[in-house]
Computed example of a mutant assay.
Amino acid sequence: MSAIEFIGITATQPVSETGAASGAAAAVSTQSETGSPTGAVIQPAYLKALATAHEEAGFDRVLVAHSSASPDGFTVADQVLTHTERLGVLLAHRPGFVAPTLAARKFATLDAFHPGRVALHVITGGDDADQARDGDLSDKPTRYRRTDEFLQIVRRTWESAEPFSHEGEFYTVKGALSGVRPAAAIPVYFGGASADAVRVGGRHADVYAFWGEPLAGIAERIAQVRAAAAPWGRDPRFSVSLRPIPAATEAEAWRRAEEILRLTKERSGELRRHFNLDHSAQHGSQRLLEYADQAEVHDKRLWTAIAKATGAAGNSTALVGSYEQVAESLLDYTALGVSTLLIRGFDPLADARDYGELVRLVRAGAAEAAEAAEAAEPVGAGRP
């Protein structure tokens, strides 16, 4: 895998948040990819096309997201992996609904069929109502304590060649031993902006994920997580989630951005009813709204208007500009220490195809920066 990891998004049916494709992808957008989700919830051909588009564009993984209404993520992930050759999955999983020993075996089994292509994205759950739809009535602090214990057992299940037992606040396990364990460690991705999230994620995360905040905010978050990880001897990597709106020229990109904003405002209520999610209590969403109140554009081209219009419903800040300008801004995040870029647009299939140019430009820029840093290093530096 390359030094910069790109993660996209997958879906089992055509869906667009605005009906507006970005960049050159506008030419290949289909009629079915406008407005709310279209057709049957499970459309195998669409899922295959979306996975293939990401692989051809140079992405490393696609996120298999989760909600109380979502199709089973393990099945979706297996379909993505089966229909591609090298593309990996970042499979979201909410602790609390599947026993940790069983969850560990499910991930290890998927990894055994597709070695090295599976990663776990831990979703503790920031929406009380959505948790309750699946029968979980616990509050957020309780959920984070449960996640902490869940991940302790998952890792032991993956790693232990001998039976083990565990007795804790949420789980009791006696003589657990899995017949399938990953040959190489399955990476654990983790997100959350609250103090509880940082505490638990610092202990367990291989990759800690942030929403697309301004550069200063990301630098602050990186420092917080590193401080929380240090007592556990961990050195996590970092991910930022953004919504690029690139075009051939900056002016064209801003025209597209304004059209996306117009359509978003028109359809935000409809989309909220469809997805039935409330992000208002999430610290990460609250931080995005604070940045949106401060300015519509931060740094060079981080655009917060979509976050403001949607109530910061998840990944909702955009980078607007020419392909070269957006790539430059993505590289600004990597210069802070970010190694994973989760990018998705507003029309999944069209944007996945379009983002191949961004992936190419960022990889080339990162390679140039690495060569320049190596050339600038004093002779003999780092040697005993």
Rank of each mutant, 00 (worst) to 15 (best):
R267L: 12
V320L: 04
E266K: 10
R94N: 07
I9M: 13
G345V: 01
R94V: 06
A372E: 11
A51V: 08
F210T: 06
A99P: 12
A313N: 11
A327Y: 00
P44E: 07
G337H: 03
T34M: 08
L336H: 06
V188M: 07
V207G: 00
S160P: 06
Y323W: 08
G321M: 04
K308S: 07
Y189F: 14
L331W: 10
H66I: 13
T310G: 03
K48S: 10
R256A: 12
L349G: 04
I42D: 11
G96Y: 07
L87G: 03
D299F: 07
R226H: 11
A92H: 09
S22P: 05
S160Q: 06
E290P: 06
A327Q: 03
A350V: 05
P348H: 08
A369F: 09
E220R: 11
G125K: 04
G269R: 10
V359F: 03
S32P: 00
Y323C: 02
A281Y: 07
G337F: 04
D206A: 07
Q325C: 04
H298F: 11
D72A: 10
A253R: 01
P378A: 05
A27C: 01
A309V: 07
V188Q: 05
G88W: 07
H83E: 13
D206R: 09
E258M: 06
Q286I: 07
A20I: 15
A21F: 03
D72R: 09
A366E: 13
R145T: 04
A184R: 15
A364C: 00
E55A: 01
G284P: 04
T30P: 00
L289C: 00
L151T: 00
R363V: 00
S241F: 12
V98P: 05
S2Q: 14
